[in-house]
Nucleic acid binder design. Structure first.
Lengths: 303, 303
DNA sequence: AGCGATTGACAACCGCTGGTTGTCGCCGGT
DNA sequence: ACCGGCGACAACCAGCGGTTGTCAATCGCT
C-alpha cells in the first residue's frame, strides 16, 4: 500500500525540527496529532524512525535511510499536481481597516492552502469598493458596514475578540479582565482619523468613552510606545496578534460584553474568476476549526 | 497540499483500463467508490481528467499530462517504503483440506497487502501440524478439528457457505435452493479418501446422506465432469469459486441450515516471527469487510 | 534534593471522510 | 423500442484522524 503523504510529511518535518511540538506547529496540528501520525507511520512500516529520548528527538538508522526517499516522494507528488494545475494569475486582494496586522488571518490561510495571493492595502471600505468596481483588485478584506455598493457581495468570515491595551501604570493595568464600561474614565486613543476606524468610533459611542485622535498612523511600534507612555489612554488590539516588545504595556481581555471585530470578504457579485472559491473554502474551513463564527448575543457585542 | 495516493492510483488504473468497473475491481472497491475517488481528485485539481462519454472513458488532455507524473509519484512512494522495509524472507504457508481452490482466499489477501507468501500444500491437518512443529512452514491454513497439537495456536478467519453441485439431469437440478436433507436420496461423491475430508464426512453423517468415494483426486475438471455425468451424485463446492466450464453442471445454494466451512490459521504459539501479524491483520480486515465471521446458530450449520 | 517547566504518550470524545448498498439516467446495439 | 451495460447520485454508517485533557519522564534551576 502507498504511504500516506500526511504521515510522511509529518515525519520529514519532525526529522528537520527534531522536536514534535515545533513540527506540529508547522503543520498547524496539535502535538498529539503529530505524535499519532508518526506512530502510525512507524507501525505501518514496522520500523522505528525516531528515537524519543528525554533529551530531544533523534533519527534512528532506518529513519535516516527513509528521509531522502521520503522527501523525493513528496516532491514527486507535488510535481504531479503542478503538471496539471494551471498556474493562473494570483488573486489580488486588498485589506483595510483597523491598522494592526489585519491580514495575518489571510497570511495564515494563504500559507496553508496553496493559494497565491497578491496583497495590497486600501484606506477604507469606500476606496476598496472603488478598486473592486474598477477591476484593480479581486477581493477586499475588512470590516464591512452596510450598505455595500451595488454589484458587490460580501461574506462574513471571522469574528475576532479584542483586548484593551494600556500602560502598566494605568489604574486598571492589573485587572485579569475588564467590562468595557469600566474604561469610561480613560481616553480611547486611535491611531489615525476616526472616520476610517468605524469600529473604534462605535465602540466609544456604545460604552460612552471619550476619544482622542492622533493625527497620523506611525506604525505598530509607535502605537505601543504611545500607549505605554500615557496611563490615561488605552486602545484596542486583537489578543492573538503579538504586541511589539515594548516594556510597560498590558493587554487585558474584555468581557460582558465581549466586543467582536467582524471581518468580511467583499467581491464583485459577477466575478467569474474561479480563484475565489478556494479562498472561500479555506476560510470556511478555518472558521469551523477555530470557531471563528460563534456569536452569542448575550455574551458578545457586535457594532 | 499533497495528493492522496489512493486517489492517484484510482486515476492511474482507470486511465489504464479506460473502464471504471474493471479499475474498481482491480482495487477491490466498488465502482461507486472509485467514481467518487476520481471525482474528488478532479475537484481538488480543478481539472477534468477523464471524459466519460456514452462510448467508454477517454483521457482528457490534462489527464494525459497528469498520467506520467502521477505514476512517478506512486513509484517514489513505493521506493520510499522499500528503502526501510527489511525485505525479509517470505512467509511459508501450507494449505490443506477440501481440495478445490482452498487458497483463493489467501491469494486475494496476498495480492492486496504486500505480503510475500510461499504457498505449499499439505495432505491434511496432521501432516501440516508436523510440518509446523518441524519448522518447515510458518503457518497452516485449512479446517481445524480439535484437539490441535500442543504448541500450536489457531484462529478462525473465515466461515464460507457451500453450494450443492450436481448434474443438470439430477432431479433437483432446477431448484433455486435446497435444504440439505433433501439430498438424502443422492450419493455424496467425494474426490479422495474420506478420512482426509472431515467436512464432507460430517456433512453426510449429519444429514443422513450416503457417500461414495472415488479413489483418487484427479483435479477440478475431472471432478466437474464426474458430477455432470452422474445424475445420482452430488458434491459440495464454494459458491464464490468459479466452476470449470463443463456443460450440464449446476450449483445450488443450501439453506435451512446453511452449511459453513470453517477456515482457520494454525501456527506455532511461540513463533517470534513478526511476519504473521500483517497476515492476521489483513485477514481480520477482509473478514470484517465481507462479514466472513457472521454466524447465526438458527440459520447456519457448522460441523 | 526538590521543584517547576518541557515534552511526548495515552484516553476519551467527536465530526467528517470514504466506504457500502440501492437506484437512476443515459447511451448504443440488436 | 427495448434491453443491457456503465457511470452518477443518494442515503447510510464505520472508522480515521483530529481535538482537548491528563499523565509520566526528564532536565535545568535553585
Amino acid at each position: 500500500m502507498d504511504p500516506d503523504p500526511a504521515q510522511v510529511r509529518a515525519f520529514v518535518l519532525a526529522a528537520e525540527e527534531l522536536h514534535f511540538g515545533r513540527a506540529a506547529e508547522r503543520l498547524s496540528i496539535s502535538q498529539q496529532a503529530l505524535s499519532k501520525r508518526i506512530a502510525a507511520l512507524e507501525s505501518r512500516l514496522g520500523v522505528r524512525l525516531l528515537d524519543r529520548g528525554g533529551r530531544g528527538v533523534r533519527l534512528t538508522e532506518p529513519g535516516t535511510r527513509f528521509l531522502g526517499p521520503a522527501r523525493n516522494a513528496l516532491n514527486a507528488g507535488e510535481a504531479a499536481v503542478a503538471a496539471v494545475r494551471p498556474a493562473g494569475r494570483p488573486l489580488r486582494i486588498d485589506v483595510w481597516g483597523h491598522l494592526f496586522a489585519p491580514m495575518r488571518t489571510l497570511g495564515r490561510i494563504a500559507e496553508r492552502s496553496e493559494l497565491r495571493l497578491e496583497l495590497g492595502h486600501g484606506r477604507d471600505l469606500p476606496s476598496v469598493s472603488a478598486a473592486l468596481l474598477g477591476h484593480q483588485i479581486d477581493v477586499g478584506f475588512g470590516r464591512v458596514h452596510p450598505p455595500v455598493d451595488e454589484g458587490l457581495t460580501q461574506r462574513l468570515v471571522r469574528l475576532e475578540p479584542v483586548d484593551a491595551v494600556l500602560s502598566a501604570d494605568h489604574p486598571l493595568a492589573s485587572e485579569p479582565h475588564l467590562r468595557p464600561d469600566r474604561l469610561r474614565g480613560s481616553l480611547l486613543w486611535t491611531p489615525g482619523p476616526l472616520d476610517r476606524l468605524d469600529f473604534l468610533r462605535r465602540f466609544a459611542d456604545r460604552f460612552g468613552i471619550e476619544r482622542h485622535t492622533s493625527g497620523v498612523n506611525l506604525g505598530l511600534d509607535h502605537f505601543a510606545a504611545q500607549i505605554a507612555a500615557d496611563p490615561t489612554c488605552f486602545s484596542l488590539f486583537p489578543p492573538d496578534c503579538p504586541l511589539p516588545d515594548v516594556p510597560g504595556i498590558r493587554s487585558i481581555p474584555l468581557l460582558e460584553p465581549m466586543p467582536l471585530y467582524a471581518w468580511s470578504l467583499v467581491w464583485r457579485r459577477d466575478d467569474p474568476s474561479h480563484l475565489l472559491a478556494p479562498l472561500l473554502a479555506a476560510l470556511a474551513d478555518q472558521a469551523r476549526r477555530n470557531r471563528w463564527l460563534e456569536f452569542d448575543p448575550n455574551r458578545d457585542w457586535l457594532p
